[in-house]
Design a protein around this nucleic acid. Structure first.
Lengths: 350, 350
DNA sequence: TCGCACCTTGCAAACGTTTGCACGAAACTA
DNA sequence: TAGTTTCGTGCAAACGTTTGCAAGGTGCGA
């Protein structure tokens, strides 16, 4: 029913190839002819069929974006940034959600493979080897996971975790807990590794609780364990869990930050709206989205470029952390936002 | 580079049409041949090219889902429900975001048109006539907007708004405000209309403030106007705005619900986590997502079926509303959750 | 033994584009 | 004026599938 290139050709009295060129290589066609063709196309409501075009050019001008959980407020800024970056380059982003399920991830990549020019895989839960295998079927850029041989974008959460632990330690906390994230999360492993070594360096105890679902409910669910563990400070895998945890602690009769200090990670918009406002490690999610699109589009056809981008994180101190029982050094004013020196990337944060 | 149907045909010594049938009509091919073909396909890592298939069958097995703002927590439950419903029917959902921009909406529908079998248009901001025009290019299901001639799914927000105003009135409030939503939103108009008539019926004043961006910031921004208006109760276009408003009121030195009562709409997960917990009108977003997918897939090829589904809403009373200055009747226990009798739909809520 | 039906497979056209090649005309250059 | 370049256009093959049609083979009943 919709008009095809042939209809336009007939109506304007030229060959279909001329119509084709009018759209995909206008400089090759006589201005006069061009405007006549355009007029007919307009009149017939013709739009080039992208699928047919893709069949022959091999480029769909679509990018797939797979996220673990679209309901996690961590992702929307990343998605939006990727969308606007893609739109500038005349690409479209298709977002899909895996429900934190590794097997769904695999299916989605495969389903997407032929309809997009590449896939942005955010916070994958599947194994490294599967990712590598899939990367042979479709160009992949991996976000939030370090992986050699593939282009990746990661946040320097190790530095972030260190800043958080140091902050707590300087406030006098000696007994801390880490509420870890979901199984299969590279970020969670990274945070754990870094937090443990930072705690050791500060001579503090660090209890690890997890793995957990990275949601409010996941955070709420560990409140009791946290109380039993007798810690005075907690670092959570993400803000959502931190917020859930604070809620859970309050139903256990514990006040934040008076009884227990809580630090989140991500700095989602919400962390400024809950009471108390959340102390958290800000991750540059929008920059990550832009970077991922750029990397996918940049290495275009030569597939040997496997850049690894690491983006800085910083500690944002708000109201959910306070003095611990131990001796503590007062924070300098310049300490309010501590920037991680991590590898500098060429993407501005916001 | 990826294996095509021809590679499989060569390797298994049959014609490509036999390979094709092995996948799309297995019963037509000899079991023995079939298993040989399947083995070769497996071995070569062959996957049918959906784009090429779509070119000839006219069905992509993809559905587009366009939302106004992916960062609005109202949408994720809808998206997830649509995804899971679609997955069950072997369809994929592609989500895209318009940044609340009507012109982006139009571009996206057009871009999606040829790559999907239909588009779910959620909370459109564009004009009715444009929607109708676009519906001639691709099957459309409209969510959150009443529109004759097209399949639609709407929530009974009119009933929700009425319940909210009645609740406030019964608490003794006489001077109320409505914080309205974005320009172009059918839901916002509907709420306004219904809230005004409910207020009139209760003999209460209702000041309308807006239009506004439907975000936390949008809510925060009107706090001052609300205070100046001297009202004691507010109904907000959505929970996000209600939460932002509460925050804004608190910086203006007003307490919720002691000084001002606030009611939201949507019942997003977050509304249970902020302090005070939000009184709100729950909208069945997941059911809407499922219904929209069903309607799109149901009316398949015969395009004359234009069902209109209306889903019930209900008032959930939490902690952000309290007694007003006027006389008030105590709420019955049975009033804690008031169900709107609205038109009954065949989709369970959740 | 013949006729017939059925099952399995191959053939080739089609879907809506893009693009290398060739051809003719017009516009230069010498 | 002849030769060369440039420009604009048409031709036809290609992309990876699906599917109506026909052909060959097999088995059955009469």
């Amino acid at each position: 029913m919709p008009a095809t290139i042939r209809d336009v050709a007939r109506e304007s009295g030229v060959h279909i190839s001329t119509v084709s060129r009018t759209f995909s290589a206008p400089h090759l066609v006589n201005p006069e002819t061009r405007s006549r063709v355009l007029a007919c196309a307009e009149h017939l409501g013709y739009r080039p069929n992208r699928a047919a075009r893709a069949l022959i050019t091999g480029r769909t001008h679509n990018i797939g974006l797979i996220v673990a959980d679209i309901a996690n407020p961590f992702f929307p800024p990343l998605i939006k940034a990727a969308e606007s970056q893609a739109r500038q380059r005349d690409y479209h982003i298709f977002v899909t959600d895996t429900n934190e399920d590794a097997s769904v991830e695999e299916d989605l990549v495969r389903a997407l493979a032929k309809q997009v020019d590449g896939v942005l895989l955010c916070s994958p839960r599947m194994s490294n080897s599967l990712i590598e295998q899939l990367s042979r079927e479709v160009p992949l850029v991996v976000v939030n996971r370090q992986l050699t041989g593939l282009p990746t974008v990661v946040m320097d959460v190790a530095q972030g975790a260190r800043l958080a632990i140091d902050h707590l330690s300087r406030l006098g906390h000696r007994r801390m807990a880490l509420v870890s994230g979901p199984r299969g999360s590279w970020t969670s492993r990274e945070i754990r590794r870094s937090a443990m070594s930072a705690a050791r360096a500060s001579d503090a105890d660090l209890t690890v609780v997890g793995p957990n679902q990275p949601t409010e409910d996941g955070g709420m669910a560990v409140a009791e364990q946290i109380v039993r563990a007798g810690v005075t400070a907690v670092l959570a895998y993400n803000d959502l869990m931190a917020i859930g945890l604070i809620e859970g602690l309050s139903t256990q009769g514990r006040r934040v930050p008076e009884d227990i200090s809580v630090v989140g990670i991500d700095d989602i918009a919400l962390s400024r709206l809950t009471r108390p406002k959340l102390t958290t490690v800000a991750t540059p999610t929008a920059a990550a989205g832009r970077a991922a699109v750029d990397m996918l589009l940049a290495h275009g056809d030569d597939r040997r470029t496997t850049a690894q981008v690491t983006l800085q994180t910083e500690l944002v101190i708000r109201d959910s952390t306070g003095p611990g029982p131990g001796p503590h050094s007062h924070a300098d004013p310049g300490d309010v936002v501590a920037t991680a020196p991590g590898e500098v990337a060429s993407y501005a944060k916001e």
